[in-house]
């Protein structure tokens, strides 16, 4: 059973997707540590350290994702979490933008996988299991 940290980053209060991700990942047997909305990078990192998590799933719906996720990977490495997988999903930038470009920007920032708006979390479960099995 893998431990994963989930939450919504920054000043974002979109709670519905977070509650559903929590429910679905538990159904799939994950040990889910949900830090909820309005969570900072440090909140994610501390939770991952405390629970020895294998992955962090960042949600960002409200558009400030690019600002809120800046240097997150660097901060994780500094905290000794370079082995922890880092995912992001939701409506992670402001406005309707070409997703391949957005994906590239976030991959450059160190995210392992980047999901477009409206991704059904069921579809991401397979990716996560695969990545963690390899790790």
């Amino acid at each position: 059973m893998y431990t994963v940290v989930i939450g919504v980053i920054g000043a974002d209060v979109h709670a519905v997707g977070n509650k559903i991700i929590d429910h679905v990942l538990k159904e799939h047997g994950f040990n889910v540590v949900n830090i909820g909305v309005l969570s900072s990078q440090e909140d994610f990192i501390n939770a991952a350290i405390e629970t020895d998590a294998k992955a962090i799933l960042v949600s960002s719906l409200y558009g400030h994702g690019e600002l809120d996720c800046k240097y997150m990977k660097e901060n994780m490495v500094e905290a000794g979490l370079s082995h922890v997988k880092l995912y992001v999903g939701g409506n992670i930038v402001v406005g309707k933008q070409d997703f391949t470009e957005v994906e590239e920007r976030f991959k450059k920032m160190g995210f392992d996988r980047v999901y477009p708006p409206g991704t059904n979390i069921e579809h991401a479960v397979g990716d996560i299991k695969e990545d963690l099995a390899d790790a």
């Binding site: 558009g63 409506n91 930038v93 402001v94 406005g95 309707k96 708006p117 409206g118």
Partner: peptide
């Protein structure tokens, strides 16, 4: 019509 994607352009 952009609602599901992001903040709309002024046109949308």
């Amino acid at each position: 019509p952009h609602e599901s994607q992001g903040i709309p352009t002024k046109e949308a």
